[in-house]
Design a binder for these strands. Sequence first.
DNA 1: CCAAAATATATCAAACAGATATATACAAGA
DNA 2: TCTTGTATATATCTGTTTGATATATTTTGG
Lengths: 208, 208
Amino acid sequence: MPRENKTRYALLGMLTYKPMSGYDMKKMSDHSIGHFWNENYGNIYPVLKKMEAKNLVTMTREEQDGAPTRKVYTITEEGRAAFSQWLSRPPEPAILREELLLQVFFGQWTNPKLITAKIREEDERCRSIIRELEGIRDHMDSGGNIREVPENSRQVMREGTPYWRHTVEFGLHYYSGIRDWCAETIKALEERRGEKDENNRIGRKSQG
Amino acid sequence: MPRENKTRYALLGMLTYKPMSGYDMKKMSDHSIGHFWNENYGNIYPVLKKMEAKNLVTMTREEQDGAPTRKVYTITEEGRAAFSQWLSRPPEPAILREELLLQVFFGQWTNPKLITAKIREEDERCRSIIRELEGIRDHMDSGGNIREVPENSRQVMREGTPYWRHTVEFGLHYYSGIRDWCAETIKALEERRGEKDENNRIGRKSQG
DNA sequence: CCAAAATATATCAAACAGATATATACAAGA
DNA sequence: TCTTGTATATATCTGTTTGATATATTTTGG
C-alpha cells in the first residue's frame, strides 16, 4: 500500500480561508507555504477532481471580465471533517534525497574545485531564500497579505498568522543550517587544498 | 519529460568501491549515505536491471555457504563514464514537503497542545538522529568501517573519508537547525498559551 | 497583426516510497 | 521433529509526486 496523498489536505486547508480555483491555490501555495511545501498543477487538478467526486469540495464555474472562466472550489462539511481528522494524525517525517550531498560524498572522483563551486551555488541559493523569508517575516504584521481576502475571512487569517510565522521561522532555521554548513565546508575544502598545494610546493614530500 | 533517475548514480558510486549485490548496496546506503539519501529495494532492483541492460554494470551469480545465492554487480567502464559525467553536472535542489509544517501552518484549526506534542516528537527524533551522526563522526577515523573492504579498496575509502565527513556534518547542521526551531516554537506556543490562560484567569478580559 | 505575458485548466511519463511477497538458511523454543 | 523467528537475498506492486508540456482565453506591447 503506497503513501497517502497529502496534496488533498494542503488544498482543503487553503479552502478553509475562502473558495478558490486551482490556479489561485497554486499561487497561494507558492506565496504562503511554498518554503516548506512543494505543490504543482500536475497534482492539483487531478486531486481537485477526485475530491469533488468524493464530495469533499464542490465546484462552480465563474465567468469574469478580462480573464478566462474559472472553476471555483468550495470546501464542504465532509471536506472540513476530513481535514480535521488529518490534523489530528501524526505527520510523516521528511524523506531526504539530497543530490548535492551525494555528489559531495563521492567527491574524490571529481575535481575538488567543482565540488567547492557547487557548494557555493547552494550557499547563494540559501542566502537568497533566507532574504525572502526575512522579508515575509518582517512584513507579516502589516496585514498586506490580508487585503485580497473577504472581510469575513480576515479574523481567520489573523488568528492563523502566528502559525504561519512559525513556518517561516522553520524555513529560516532550515536554510541557515545548510548555509552554515556550506560556509564551513568551503572553508575546510580550501584549507585541504591549501595543504596539498603547500606539500607540492615544498617538494612533493607527500604521497597523497 | 519527467525527472531523471538518480538512484542509478548512487548505486554506480557505491560500485566504485567494490562489486556488490542489491542487498549489500541497500545496507551500505543505510549506513553511509542514509542520513541524506533515502533508497529502497523498490528502486534498487529495477534500476540494477536497467543498468545491466545498458551495460553500465555486469552481473554474476555467487553461491555462498550458509546464505542464499547472490547476484553481484560490477561497474563497467561505461558505468564509470556515466558516473563521472553525472558528477560534473549541477545537482538539483531539494524539494520540500514537510507534513509537520503543513499541520503547524493550519494549527488554528486544532488543539494547540496537539501541535506542541507533534513538535516535541520531531524534536526527539532530531536529537536521536543527531546522536547517531555524532557517533558516526567520532568513530570515522578509527577505520572500523574499512574492515569489511578488500585491501585494494582501502586507499580509495580512506581518500573518500573527508567527503563522507562533510556529509555527516551536513546532517548535523540540518537536524540541529530543525531541533532548534522545535525548541523555540514549543517555547513560543507555551508562552502564548500562558498568556491566554492568564487572560482567562484575570476575568475574560480578552476577546480572543 | 503578431508575439509575449497573464490568467486558467489539464495531461503525461517516469521517478519514487514503502508495503508486501518469495526463497534460502540458520537458530531457538515447544 | 516441527514451528517460529531472524538473517540473507531478490523482487513486485500501487499509488504519490515531479515538472515538462499542452491547450484555451484575454490583454498588452511592438
